[in-house]
Write a protein that binds this DNA or RNA. Sequence first.
DNA 1: CTGAAAGCGCTAACAT
DNA 2: ATGTTAGCGCTTTCAG
Lengths: 356, 356
Amino acid sequence: MRKHSHITLADIAGRLGVSRVTVSKALRGHPDISEGMAKKVRRIASELGYSPNRMARNLSARKSHLLGLVVPKIAHFFFGSVIETVYAKALEHRYETILMVSHENEEQEIQHLQTLVSMRVDGIIISVSARLRDTAIFEWVKKMGIPLLFMDRVPDPPPKGSTTVIVDDYGGTVQAIEQAITVGHTTIACIGGDRNINIGRNRVQGYTDTLRRHGLPVREEWIIAGGYGTEAAYSGFMRLYENGQVPRCIFAVTYPVALGIYAAAKARNVRIPHDIDVICFGDSDIGSLLTPALSCVSQPTQRLGEESVKILMEMIDHPESTLAGNYVIPTELILRETCVRAKGTATPDNRLKNDT
Amino acid sequence: MRKHSHITLADIAGRLGVSRVTVSKALRGHPDISEGMAKKVRRIASELGYSPNRMARNLSARKSHLLGLVVPKIAHFFFGSVIETVYAKALEHRYETILMVSHENEEQEIQHLQTLVSMRVDGIIISVSARLRDTAIFEWVKKMGIPLLFMDRVPDPPPKGSTTVIVDDYGGTVQAIEQAITVGHTTIACIGGDRNINIGRNRVQGYTDTLRRHGLPVREEWIIAGGYGTEAAYSGFMRLYENGQVPRCIFAVTYPVALGIYAAAKARNVRIPHDIDVICFGDSDIGSLLTPALSCVSQPTQRLGEESVKILMEMIDHPESTLAGNYVIPTELILRETCVRAKGTATPDNRLKNDT
DNA sequence: CTGAAAGCGCTAACAT
DNA sequence: ATGTTAGCGCTTTCAG
């Protein structure tokens, strides 16, 4: 007597007096089987509440139809949005997605990768954690024959021969800083980022380059690293204010960083954009709900997710063509209520409120 | 010649001149194997970059060490937070979590459940979609011998003999409405919710009951259903304002609903809390960053997730003891800048700004 | 302590 | 069009 009374192919086959193979083929729509037989099989299967055992199928077929997705966090508009897209797009290709969250922690990241390999996923999309140091794990994954695609957050420099799909961090930052300059700001700080991965490096680089190109001074004490989160940004802002000289505008390296700045400003009774202006890299669903509504350079999360899946599918289907591509997706400047006027001071609040 | 050149137990066994069984046992720390042998095995395994094939393992052991988690959406503080907790807690029990997002769509929900069953996950935690109608699928899952636990969003009425872990929707709402009343509000609307699942029903019920208990009128046109999302809330707010009589306070059934109200108020130039006050059910990371900072009844997402996993583990380990439990977790009132003073009118903005 | 035998549920050749 | 034969890689009795 079977334990979990799970229906198997044999059960269906027995009922119809045919072999398991016939049932297997019928259920998968294999052309070998006649329509009549197929119908009968399907009927019995649904009658019995048959559910194919994917593990068995995967093991036998040496194909899991599983995709691994590793991200540093989930409660963040950017990742939430990307995750949804990846799930949906993968499903279109009849792939299930296994999500793993690293919490910006390299150890967990490695462990997740190991788990995914042991699940024999057919491909992996990863957005690396900010603390990443050792890239040996990625070599291992590749050696295990699993296509790996870096999305958005890429080790810097990227492992040789790797495939990456990223947003135009540099170009987008230039857009943001130029907007600030256009509006009349000459003292602009940069909060967030680090030098380990591309997004930090490129955004900070775009910031300094643009200032220089416009003949504006680059002050080291106005470049405040500290990653990509809200908390660090909060204290970064505070530090900025303790340093004496305060800039007129802040470029936030990510959306959560901008939130930290808003929080800190509120706590310190500093008014945005009156006392200090803000513009950031990365959009969010609540960007327009903040007061003042936050202007930003938006990352096309949909396209990022879609392209990544599409490319990964390509890699899975044609492992030979190792054309390590590097795809860059352009950004878009979204102007709301910050960084639209240097003399925010003079503008009454309610006038600002309507030009979303 | 093997295709994916994956190392298997046989490879390790061959190297050591022992059998696969020995290796298998050694790798899993089975007491049968001597420490000396075990060490050797582990060394070779890591030398060869061995990664156990989970599918094979699961198939053979009839146990997947996989947990299914189905939620209606992911880009939402509440779910994001719960998901993280479930992942972490499951990992403590050496379980991997498979996340599935239904997008409030019953069809997807059913499909996800089927997929999870076919993956033979050991247990499932589900927060049902708002549009849920047919509960037959849940019976099927149970019949397949997979423990099922409803979290937060439960079909109303819950399937017989089901296990549920929910937040005290009714009690929490009472807290919120009483706060509004304490502060002096007598005209309070309710936006969001529906009658299909518990959270809508209980929250709306808590709202009407509390009004009645305080002898306040319950006006049907001030109870605006429309689910749990931001968009519907936005139009709900607009409808409220077109109906002529406008209340002094709004109870938002969920956090996203409150966001929709903020957005609509901004668009219509209605000031919060001056013109209309707001309090909502459910907290968020940005609650205190909004202007004005939003007061709410907070759901203990951590406890919800932890308890759910703990109980599910119990169900997995002891399938016999079918003690269908119904666990309720209490809420907490968090007062910020809304719903703290009926005459918000008279209070200068900057006074308010500091009492976080 | 170690191993031989059997099988988890399914699929992929290769017959028939 | 259907069935036979062999595994996929691992774990579980149960002998030795």
